[in-house]
Simulated scan of single mutants.
Amino acid sequence: MCKGKFIGRPNRFIAEVEIDGRTVRAHVKNTGRCQELLVPGTEVWLEDFAERMGNRKLRYALIGVQKGDLLVNMDSQAPNKVCEEALISGALNLPGMEKLVKVQREKTFGRSRFDFYVEDIHCRGGWLEVKGVTLEEDGVARFPDAPTERGVKHVLELTQAAAQGYQAYVLFVIQMKGVSRFEPNDRTHRAFGDALRQARAKGVCIMARDCQVWTDGMTLDEAIPVYL
């Protein structure tokens, strides 16, 4: 890991970063807007692939941003990874289900591919969709930071799964510590917030957990209140 200073973002996949006085390009492991995080002059953390480039085109990957006192993980793949670890270890309990005996990633229901399909010791099945959250405003975590029709579709499909007798969950993984609650970002995409409210009214469990974050990764941590 190494530290740098964010300069700019020519496109959603690439950041220009200053490291020890030189400008390099780094892969951005998050295609969201992240405008409140990626501000010129901001301290960022990068993974260095110098010894394991393989087919990589860029030596560095931007995975962390210092936002005031908060260290924010930017890796969009990290939420599913820490969620899977927590499901398997039992650190993440799903309301309405007991000990899990099956945890499968990327399974299809209806017209959607959800992040996880799970079953417990009583053969109850459940669908879980995970959303990584990097937007924080005055101690409140919000999602999304840009309109997400795909997110709306997932939530509505989960509502159908619940109607068919499955357990259904949306988990917002807040990629930082220090937030007081989670809210849908109605200002950015009201339809997503409306879909969440409709889903909860029809039996979908809406959850949020924050994370312990280090410069080189994170782990799922405490439950955070959800305000819809």
Rank of each mutant, 00 (worst) to 15 (best):
E98V: 11
G32C: 15
R200P: 09
R105P: 14
R25D: 05
D221H: 13
L71A: 06
N80Y: 10
Q164R: 04
G178E: 09
E43M: 10
C205S: 12
L70F: 13
A168H: 02
G151P: 11
P40Q: 05
D145E: 05
L87F: 03
F116H: 02
A163Q: 03
F182R: 03
D48I: 13
E18G: 14
V17I: 10
R181M: 04
S112W: 12
A195C: 10
L228P: 01
S112G: 10
A15H: 06
A201R: 04
S112N: 09
L38S: 06
C211N: 00
I174H: 04
R12L: 14
G217L: 04
F13Y: 13
E119L: 00
A15S: 07
G132R: 03
T148C: 06
A223W: 08
F6N: 11
D120H: 05
P95L: 06
G139W: 03
R190G: 11
K131D: 05
K57I: 08
R150Q: 11
V101Q: 08
H154R: 01
A78P: 12
K81R: 07
P79C: 03
S89D: 02
P225N: 06
V155Y: 08
L70W: 15
V17G: 11
A50D: 13
R190I: 15
W45G: 10
G90L: 01
M97V: 07
R209Y: 08
H122V: 03
V140C: 12
G178P: 12
L94K: 00
R56P: 07
R56I: 04
S180G: 02
R113T: 07
K5Y: 15
I63S: 12
K177N: 09
I63D: 12
V65N: 03
